[in-house]
Design a protein around this nucleic acid. Sequence first.
DNA 1: AATGAATGAGCGTTCATTCAT
DNA 2: AATGAATGAACGCTCATTCAT
Lengths: 243, 243, 243, 243
Amino acid sequence: MGEILPKIGDDPCDLLEILPRGRPAAGQDPIKRGQIIDGARRVFIDKGFEAASMNDITREAGVSKGTIYVYFANKEELFEALIEEERSTIFKNMYDVLDQIGDLRATLVKFGKVLSAKITSAKVIQAQRTVVGAADRIPELGTRFYERGPKRGHDKIVIFLNAAIERGLLNIADVDLAAYQFTELCLAGLFRQCIFNYRTKAPSSAEIEHIVSSGVDMFLKFYGTEQLATEESDQVIAKEAKL
Amino acid sequence: MGEILPKIGDDPCDLLEILPRGRPAAGQDPIKRGQIIDGARRVFIDKGFEAASMNDITREAGVSKGTIYVYFANKEELFEALIEEERSTIFKNMYDVLDQIGDLRATLVKFGKVLSAKITSAKVIQAQRTVVGAADRIPELGTRFYERGPKRGHDKIVIFLNAAIERGLLNIADVDLAAYQFTELCLAGLFRQCIFNYRTKAPSSAEIEHIVSSGVDMFLKFYGTEQLATEESDQVIAKEAKL
Amino acid sequence: MGEILPKIGDDPCDLLEILPRGRPAAGQDPIKRGQIIDGARRVFIDKGFEAASMNDITREAGVSKGTIYVYFANKEELFEALIEEERSTIFKNMYDVLDQIGDLRATLVKFGKVLSAKITSAKVIQAQRTVVGAADRIPELGTRFYERGPKRGHDKIVIFLNAAIERGLLNIADVDLAAYQFTELCLAGLFRQCIFNYRTKAPSSAEIEHIVSSGVDMFLKFYGTEQLATEESDQVIAKEAKL
Amino acid sequence: MGEILPKIGDDPCDLLEILPRGRPAAGQDPIKRGQIIDGARRVFIDKGFEAASMNDITREAGVSKGTIYVYFANKEELFEALIEEERSTIFKNMYDVLDQIGDLRATLVKFGKVLSAKITSAKVIQAQRTVVGAADRIPELGTRFYERGPKRGHDKIVIFLNAAIERGLLNIADVDLAAYQFTELCLAGLFRQCIFNYRTKAPSSAEIEHIVSSGVDMFLKFYGTEQLATEESDQVIAKEAKL
DNA sequence: AATGAATGAGCGTTCATTCAT
DNA sequence: AATGAATGAACGCTCATTCAT
């Protein structure tokens, strides 16, 4: 393929670098791959691994069966690729809020709301259900999903908390546990309700706000230091002064 | 099925219900039904709904295919009946601790440990995974499971907390939320780790103890009243006096 | 099938010993098994192993696909069972002639004709082609076919020749080779012509007679003793005397 | 294909046929054709017609799928072309020994050994199996193979025998039959053993020598004339004199 | 002229459900 | 009432052939 193409740079049409030229190699066309994954997403997420049929996916993806098998060795690999994509999409950027330095309480609330909203959103719940449902048949799938998704997020929370401890704002004996506690408080009740389909739709942002702010209060009451309290009351005073 | 049968009491043969004689009516023998459900449990919980085959269940249950179809209209109904049983078994007695009146903190810790241990036990995780995995195919299944399981437990916690509020030991604005927070703190991290198969075995009782006691501390620090603090220090003094 | 048969029941149960009573166990009904093998025969012998489809066999056998898989684990096993049956049918009784003691030349001619006619008959050639065609994919199949078919026959010829040697009628250094030579002389040209489908139909009995008698002449001229010659001329004289 | 092309001779560019310059016409490059056939040989002979896939051949031949379909209309035609080539290679020169005039017995033994070794060689057996296996699906294939291979050889043997008859060395009533008998005696037992995969490797040359010399002895004892016997004993005397 | 990505009919096999016994 | 042999639609997957590039 590539060798036949004229050298890039001799050509005023270099933009074509972005839009691929010629026919892509078998199993290499990212557009087609995307099409297949999209079809697979609709079917797998909707029906789960077992109940989804390759014919369904064929139909949804708008490609032939043979083509799917050029891109993915079998149903399981296609499923795993999809879950990997989902995982990556879901957790991408979820923890960005924690990178900004700022007011501790405000950051926790902001982050808690993002976390809670994301994890309980209809699409993400569906995806998680699909992973859980397949966890018996493909055990590493669930393991990997958790490892590269929730676990990495957890690690970022731990780092964030440690930074706050360093700044003297928090006093935590078991940071790992504290990170889990924080996450759970932000999701209080929601995750289990959603995953079991008791809640058939995602919580409102008001509800999330209510839960998260209560959770942060509890968390800071338990782990916050004197210094945090001082800083916060200073801020309140400063704010009031401004008004 | 059962609903179509004449109400017990309208019938002079009611004794048969109590001391069954002779061959039970088709689909009415509770022993055979139990046998089927037991076989179904082993297969469904192990393989999930789709991967389980009626032949497997036939073999495990030691009854014929036709018999299963007399007791249960189809695979789905059998599965639902099994899940109903599982749900009932799992949550039976889980909340008994809350009925005893006693030291608040001790009760919460005791209950939290039971709750956490139960929900993260291998068998119960398997069952929950099975329910979650089937929740797309049979949405009401998950709904009903949550409603009659976790939700009822939640209600009992709410009642317990309200009693403590009445006793002046707690000061909670949103009791419903507090109940969720308590549950989540007791499970901090465990439920998601187990359900996704990141943890491949149940947490140790030491781990649970650690999590629960930290959770209860946080919970009481946030919601506990002055009176609770007084009572507790009294108890400590009393204890020390005893020694 | 069986249901259409007239009720046995006029009868004090004697016949029942022969005709099975009740429904046979799964994969145990010899009538159904026969039906499947018969369908398989028509399809496999006609098309060869690979080109035959289980759907074709289903259609020819008049049973459902599932039923075939109760009786035979897979296509290959069904094929092997069929070939085993064919082999058994083909070679059954083929060597009976050799058991009778009688005039040597006459016995050899009689046997040679049976052998030649059998092996070159349309059905048997088809079956052998099927075995040969599958010998790459299932090597033991051909091995077993030869071992239990032609090889056993060969052994019987060896025994027969040894008996004749004992009787002083033949003088053979390498009996094993002689047995092969005899067989080949009886088939002179026919087997290869048939198996390659150069001859599209079986040789006439006149042709076989011609080939076999010439073959026997050559064989006896080479391996016959003085005693055989004497006996034979005696017989001719005796015959002429009778006329 | 080829037939559609204009007749050679109508065209002033005929030299191109002899010394082709530039790119050959579609489906006309004999090098590429050879490449394809070579790939096809490796795959077809190894796996048989049905089990061979066009992708395998593509890979083995190192040409694209499309190109194969330019040279051969479909799998079947490619297979037939291959078999034609195989046939031609196998039987080429096999009968050269018969063209030399010399000692009859020695010539027969020499030829018989060549014939037997060739036909029972692993590669040739494989090829014959492939033909036999395909003979149901493509009946003319086997017919043509035999016609242009074994049959032509047979004809050459007939010519050779007739020459020997003319020289007064043999006395044969049915020369056609005698030719078959000779061939069969040289292969005694081997062909069937090999084709059915009872023998999994080619016979040793010692074995072939044993079989062939016994076969020639039998053949000449039956068909040899007084003159042959005289000539041979003369040769023996001459040989002994030389020593 | 040559390529090889794409197609989709067809493969062997499984299994929820039925119904004759 | 209970059985389990039989059914056949549907499964995941392959591969001869086509045709846009």
